[in-house]
Amino acid sequence: MRPDFSTATFKTSTRTDGNGTCVEVARVPGFAAVRDTKHRSVGHISFSDKAFGAFLKGLR
């Protein structure tokens, strides 16, 4: 089943420095989506919560 992000709110990190080179993340139950702020109209990629959690853990 494909998650529906059509009504999800994408948020930019509070650590963004304002130069326009960042990503936004939206959450729906069980999934997260990531998109480029410079190319919002292109769409997003989505990940399961488990995969996104592993990604975030790797960043830390």
Rank of each mutant, 00 (worst) to 15 (best):
R2I: 08
R2W: 08
P3C: 06
D4L: 06
D4A: 05
S6P: 08
S6Q: 07
T7A: 10
T9A: 10
T9H: 13
K11H: 12
T12K: 08
S13N: 06
S13L: 04
R15K: 14
T16K: 06
T16H: 11
D17P: 09
D17E: 07
D17Q: 14
G18V: 05
G20E: 00
T21P: 01
T21Q: 12
C22S: 12
C22Q: 03
V23Y: 04
V23G: 02
V23F: 08
V25N: 05
R27V: 08
R27N: 10
V28T: 06
V28Y: 01
P29H: 01
P29M: 02
G30F: 01
F31G: 02
A32K: 10
V34D: 01
V34S: 06
R35Q: 04
D36F: 00
D36W: 00
K38M: 04
H39R: 15
H39A: 15
S41W: 08
S41K: 07
V42W: 05
I45Q: 13
I45T: 14
S46I: 04
F47R: 04
A51K: 15
F52N: 10
G53P: 03
L56M: 15
G58M: 14
G58Y: 09
L59D: 15
L59G: 15
R60D: 11
R60V: 15
